[in-house]
């Protein structure tokens, strides 16, 4: 009984972690991906920003669905970690400014 309770507790923790990674991690990923997309699109600044913003909901949607249904939590964590390189692409001028 106690063991199943402990197991249940752990299952809840895993689930909660997964939800946090999907919702908040997914938002961070989407934020970085949107910035990177806006930076990389070869259009006028405004057009690039507009397209990236409109695409961001699809990115977030895909990430959330993937993060909630993929098997391994480690893989989801890896996905969340992809925020960093994407953010580096999106914000490289600001990054250089900060490093100087």
């Amino acid at each position: 009984m106690a063991r199943t309770a402990a197991k249940d507790g752990r299952a809840w923790q895993v689930l909660l972690l997964r939800i946090v990674m999907a919702v908040l991690g997914g938002y961070a990923f989407t934020y970085a991906a949107t910035a990177a997309l806006a930076r990389l699109l070869p259009f006028d600044r405004y057009d690039a920003a507009a397209i990236a913003m409109l695409a961001s909901f699809v990115v977030y949607l895909t990430f959330v669905l993937w993060a909630l249904t993929t098997r391994s939590s480690w893989r989801v964590l890896l996905g969340v970690m992809a925020t960093l390189p994407l953010a580096a692409i999106g914000f490289w001028p600001q990054l250089l400014e900060g490093l100087r």
């Binding site: 991906a33 949107t34 910035a35 990177a36 600044r45 920003a49 990236a52 961001s56 909901f57 999106g90």
Partner: peptide
């Protein structure tokens, strides 16, 4: 969602417009 896209996802504005 698109109506409030600048509010919901300000990433592009933050990156390109400071």
């Amino acid at each position: 969602l698109a109506i409030f896209c600048v509010l919901y996802m300000p990433a592009a504005v933050d990156a390109l417009y400071g």
